[in-house]
């Protein structure tokens, strides 16, 4: 037993215990699958797919993409200046550093769906409140992620830019941003992907897009349309993933 120490054993026992507790709390029970015939029955209604509403579905897909793109890109643009204030090495003052940090984690702690539900009350149904909900949440998330990239950036160029007599904010901008840019894009594309999934959920509460169509088709028992909705969503997510890695490779 060279590989294992007593601490490993204790960790193992604790983990087993937590897995057991979590199973009890979530009513995890594989024997329930004895009724799996219901699921097959249900899924068989999904096929064959119904292509009659394809043009409208594609239009909704575009709307979803637009929601996710706009929400995440606006989030990034707003987050960038905040992230410089929220990074220990570039913050103009201690006070601003801490307040920006706290502000960002407050915004981050509110889920998009809560933003969406609140905004619905003034903006009504549709994609606009969904875009804002995605944007707010992404300001919090990207602000934190980018500020961590800034803190990890090489100090050398920052020092060089100060040594030429540049103003602090110009020095930081020019020395840090080119360094972290590929990683910023990487984070952005991940958040864009997440935003697509989020906008589907926001569709369930009336945020428009393919998510809302999926929800409506489901609630009206049009399963042959549901299957096509799901298929289109899968294709969209895969396509965005490919596009993201293409852009990252071009940038690096």
């Amino acid at each position: 037993m060279v590989w294992f120490k007593r601490r490993n054993l204790i960790t193992f026992i604790l983990l087993t215990f937590f897995v057991y507790i979590s199973m009890r709390l979530t009513e995890f029970d594989l024997t329930k699958f004895k009724d799996f015939r219901n699921m097959i029955d249900f899924l068989s209604q999904w096929f064959p797919m119904d292509y009659s509403k394809l043009p409208a579905m594609l239009q909704d897909t575009l709307e979803t993409l637009a929601m996710a793109f706009l929400g995440s890109i606006l989030g990034l643009l707003i987050a960038l200046p905040f992230s410089f204030a929220a990074a220990r090495n570039t913050a103009p003052s201690k006070l601003l550093f801490h307040s920006t940090r706290i502000g960002l984690s407050l915004v981050r702690s509110i889920p998009e769906i809560v933003f969406g539900l609140i905004l619905l009350t003034t903006l009504g149904l549709g994609p606009f409140p969904a875009v804002l909900a995605i944007m707010f949440h992404n300001v919090g998330v990207l602000g934190k992620l980018v500020s961590e990239l800034i803190e990890a950036a090489d100090r050398g160029p920052q020092e060089a830019m100060k040594a030429v007599g540049a103003k602090n904010w110009i020095a930081y901008l020019f020395s840090v941003l080119p360094q972290i840019w590929p990683n910023v894009l990487s984070h952005y594309f991940y958040r864009f992907e997440v935003a697509i999934r989020t906008s589907l959920i926001l569709g369930f509460i009336g945020g428009g897009g393919i998510g809302q169509r999926l929800f409506n088709d489901f609630k009206t028992f049009q399963y042959s349309s549901v299957s096509l909705d799901v298929f289109i969503i899968m294709l969209m997510v895969i396509a965005v993933d490919f596009f993201g890695s293409y852009v990252r490779n071009r940038v690096i």
């Binding site: 030429v164 540049a166 103003k167 020019f174 080119p178």
Partner: peptide, 26 residues
């Protein structure tokens, strides 16, 4: 005062000309 460094401290992903132009920033 011009300053040069052990690790050069150039700005990555920028060209030679762009890097040199940052010297005028002051």
């Amino acid at each position: 005062m011009g300053m040069i460094f052990q690790h050069f401290n150039l700005i990555p992903r920028m060209s030679v000309l762009q890097n040199v132009l940052t010297g005028t920033f002051g």
